[in-house]
Design a binder for these strands. Structure first.
Length: 567
RNA sequence: CGGGGAGUGGCGCAGUUUGGUAGCGCACCUGCUUUGGGAGCAGGGGGUCGGGGGUUCAAGUCCCCCCUCCCCGACCA
C-alpha cells in the first residue's frame, strides 16, 4: 500500500482522554479512532492487525476441529428469558425495541448458539461438535476505559462445544485449551493460564488466559517456584493449623464498644482505652447463608479480606432479624456451635494465640478469645483473598500478585445452560432424551491489539510482532521529490516484494525525512527499509529491525532476497 | 451508581478570575525556498466556544437546567 493512498493521518500528540500507553499509541499512529465512550472504529491499519489475529484464531480453532459459523448479534428477548439471564445480566444487557418486538444485543451467545444448532444435534450420532464465531458483542459497561481494553462494543471469538457426556466435554475442553495456548503463542503475547472463578456464567472447571499488563483490571496469584497460578478471586493460600501455646492467657474479657462495628472503629476505640490492639489482632467474623438457608460464619484476621466460597451469600437485614443471636457489627464465633452455625476459619486464625472479637452482644467486643477454649471452629482452610507473600497452596513458597488483563477464558459449562433450555437435548443410544454437556471458549479479539501494544512499544511508538503486524515491511524514500532514479528504484522494490506476497507499506510521500522516520517508528512495522541517495550512491540500503532496533546495511542486489528471508 | 476533573476548528491548549470584534502550536490549502531524524518564509480556509434557558446595551466569560467525556471507587460473560 502506498501511503499517499492510505487513509491515515498520524498525530504528534495523543488525545487528552487517552490514559493507557496502548490507547495513546494506537490513536496517534492511526489504528483506531473513538466514536463514543467505549466505542471505537478500526481504521485500515487497525483492521489489518485485527484481521491477522482473527486468522490465527480461525486456523487454530479449525485445527482443533471446530467449525466457524455466524450467529446474529440481535437476539429475541425470549431466549434470554428462558435461561433467566435477562434478569441476572440486566446490568450489562443492551436492548433494542424494533417492530418485531424487543431484541437483546448479544453480550455472549450461549442461548443463541443452542437455539441455532440444536436441530442439527438431535442424536448422539451427531456429537461431539464444536462451533465458533467471530462476532461483535455488546455490553453496557458501567465504565469503559483504557481504549480498546474495556469497551461497550467489542469483537470476540467465541466457541461452544457440545458433547454426550462429562468425559466428552473434558476432551473437547482440553483440545480447545490447547488451541488457546497455540493462539497466544502465535500472537507473541506473554500469558499465563490461571485457574479462575466461574462467575455468573456458571459451570465448573475454567481457566483464564491472563496477559500481565499495567492496565489490566485483574490480578492473579502466581507461585514462581511450582507454577501455581490462579485468579485473585479463585486463588487459595496454603497453610496448616499452627500449634499455639495458650496456657498463660487470661480469661476472656468483655468491653463496651458502643457504635464501633467496623475493624477500624473497634481498633481505634479500644486502642484509645489503652488496650494493645491492632487490625490483625481483631477477628473479623462474617456471616453468610448457604443454599439451604443455614448460617455459615467465616473468620479471618481484621487486616484481611474474606474470599467468599462459591454458594455462600451475605445475610440480608431480614436474615439478621430471624437469627436474633447475630448482632450485626458485633458478631463473634463464641457459642455458634450451639446455634447450629458452621464456623469456617482461615489458617491465619491459628497463627495467633488470642483474639479480639465481636461479643455477640450489641455494642460489645471481647478480648482474649482463645480457639478451642472460648470458641470452636468446624473447618480450618483458606478463606482469605490471597495477598503478596501468602504461602502457595501447592508448595508453600511465597505467592506474588500480578496485575493482568483477561485475554481469554475457557469454561466447562456442563449442563448449566442446556438444563434450562427444553430443546437442548439429543437422543441417547438407549432412546432417552439427554442434555448436552457444553463448554465455551472466548477470546477478546478487539482487546488483543491493546494487550499486544502494551507489551510491544518503546518511547517512539509501536513494535508489532511479525505475526500480527499490519505490514511486514515499510519502505521509505528520502528526498523523493528531487531524485527520480531513487523513486524508480523504490517503486521497483515495492512492486517486486508485493508481487512475491510480502505485505509492504510504501511511504512515498514527499515530506521531510524526519517525518517519515518518526511515522515509521510510530506505526511499528517490523522491518523498515530506508532508500536514500546517500546509501544508493554506495550501493547499500539500510534495513532496520523495529523490534530489536538493529540496523543493517544490505547491498542493493541482495535487498529483495534479504527482505524475503525475514518473512 | 458514589467521589473528583474537563468540554473553545481534526488533535493539543490559552482566553473565563475582572463581560467589550475568538487566539496559539500541530494538521489542512496555495506559492516560493528547502530536503538523511517531526523544515523556512509568505498568503489562505476552517470554530453553533457541549446544548437549552436566563441576566445584560453587550456573554466563551455571570446565573439555572441538561448532555457528553476522563480519572478514582463500586460493578464486571
Amino acid at each position: 500500500m502506498r501511503m499517499t493512498r492510505l487513509a491515515l493521518k498520524t498525530q504528534r500528540e495523543a488525545p487528552a482522554d487517552a490514559e493507557a500507553v496502548s490507547h495513546q499509541l494506537l490513536v496517534r499512529a492511526g489504528y483506531i479512532r473513538r466514536m463514543a465512550s467505549g466505542v471505537y472504529s478500526f481504521l485500515p491499519l487497525g483492521l489489518r492487525v485485527l484481521t491477522k489475529l482473527n486468522q490465527i484464531v480461525r486456523e487454530e480453532f479449525d485445527a482443533a476441529g471446530a467449525q466457524e459459523l455466524l450467529l446474529p448479534a440481535l437476539h429475541p428477548v425470549e431466549i434470554w428469558e428462558q435461561t433467566g439471564r435477562l434478569a441476572t445480566m440486566a446490568d450489562v444487557l443492551m436492548t433494542v425495541d424494533a417492530k418485531g418486538g424487543t431484541f437483546v444485543l448479544g453480550p455472549t451467545h450461549e442461548e443463541a448458539v443452542i437455539a441455532t444448532v440444536s436441530p442439527d444435534l438431535e442424536s448422539y450420532r451427531d456429537l461431539p461438535v464444536t462451533v465458533y464465531q467471530i462476532q461483535t458483542k455488546f455490553r453496557d459497561e458501567a465504565r469503559p476505559r483504557y481504549g480498546l481494553m474495556r469497551t461497550r462494543e467489542f469483537i470476540m471469538a467465541d466457541a461452544y462445544s457440545f458433547d454426550v457426556s462429562q468425559e466428552g466435554m473434558k476432551e473437547s475442553y482440553n483440545s480447545m485449551y490447547q488451541a488457546f495456548v497455540k493462539i497466544f503463542d502465535r500472537c507473541g503475547l506473554p500469558y499465563v493460564p490461571v485457574e479462575a472463578d466461574s462467575g455468573a456464567i456458571g459451570g465448573d472447571v475454567n481457566h483464564e488466559f491472563m496477559v500481565p499488563s499495567a492496565i489490566g483490571e485483574d490480578h492473579f496469584a502466581q507461585c514462581v517456584e511450582c507454577g501455581y497460578a490462579a485468579n485473585i478471586e479463585a486463588a487459595k493460600r496454603g497453610g496448616s493449623r499452627q500449634p499455639a501455646d495458650t496456657s498463660g492467657i487470661a480469661a476472656m474479657e468483655i468491653h463496651a464498644t458502643p457504635g464501633a462495628s467496623s475493624v477500624r472503629d473497634v481498633v481505634s476505640f479500644l486502642g484509645a482505652k489503652g488496650l494493645d490492639i491492632v487490625d490483625a489482632a481483631l477477628m473479623k467474623s462474617l456471616a453468610f447463608k448457604d443454599a439451604n438457608g443455614d448460617v455459615v460464619m467465616i473468620l479471618v484476621p481484621g487486616n484481611r479480606e474474606v474470599r467468599v466460597p462459591a454458594g455462600l451469600i451475605p445475610l440480608t437485614d431480614a436474615d439478621f432479624e430471624s437469627n436474633s443471636f447475630l448482632f450485626k457489627g458485633f458478631i463473634g464465633p463464641m457459642g455458634m456451635r450451639d446455634q447450629g452455625v458452621r464456623v469456617l476459619a482461615d489458617y491465619s486464625i491459628t497463627e495467633r494465640s488470642s483474639w479480639f472479637a465481636g461479643a455477640n452482644l450489641e455494642g460489645h467486643h471481647v478480648s482474649n478469645a482463645v480457639l478451642d477454649r472460648d470458641f470452636t471452629v468446624d473447618e480450618i482452610g483458606s478463606f482469605v483473598v490471597v495477598a503478596d507473600g501468602d504461602p502457595c497452596p501447592n508448595c508453600g513458597r511465597a505467592l506474588s500478585l500480578v496485575r493482568s488483563a483477561e485475554a481469554g477464558h475457557t469454561f466447562q459449562l456442563g449442563l448449566a445452560y442446556s438444563s434450562k433450555i427444553p430443546y437442548a437435548t439429543f437422543k441417547a443410544e438407549d432412546g432417552s432424551d439427554q442434555k448436552y454437556w457444553m463448554g465455551c471458549y472466548g477470546i477478546g479479539m478487539s482487546r488483543l491489539p491493546a494487550a499486544i501494544a502494551e507489551n510491544f512499544h518503546d518511547e517512539n511508538g509501536l513494535r508489532w510482532p511479525r505475526s500480527v503486524a499490519p505490514y511486514q515491511v515499510e519502505i521509505l524514500t528520502i528526498t523523493p521529490g528531487r531524485a527520480p532514479e531513487l523513486v524508480a528504484f523504490a517503486d521497483s522494490v515495492y512492486e517486486e516484494l508485493s508481487s512475491r506476497g510480502v505485505e509492504v507499506l510504501y511511504d512515498d510521500r514527499d515530506v521531510a525525512a524526519g517525518v517519515k522516520f518518526a511515522d515509521a517508528d510510530l506505526i511499528g512495522v517490523p522491518a523498515i527499509v530506508t532508500i536514500g541517495q546517500r546509501g544508493l550512491a554506495n550501493g547499500v540500503i539500510e534495513v532496520k529491525d523495529r523490534l530489536s532496533g538493529e540496523r543493517s546495511e544490505v547491498g542493493v542486489p541482495d535487498l529483495i532476497e534479504h527482505l524475503l528471508a525475514l518473512q
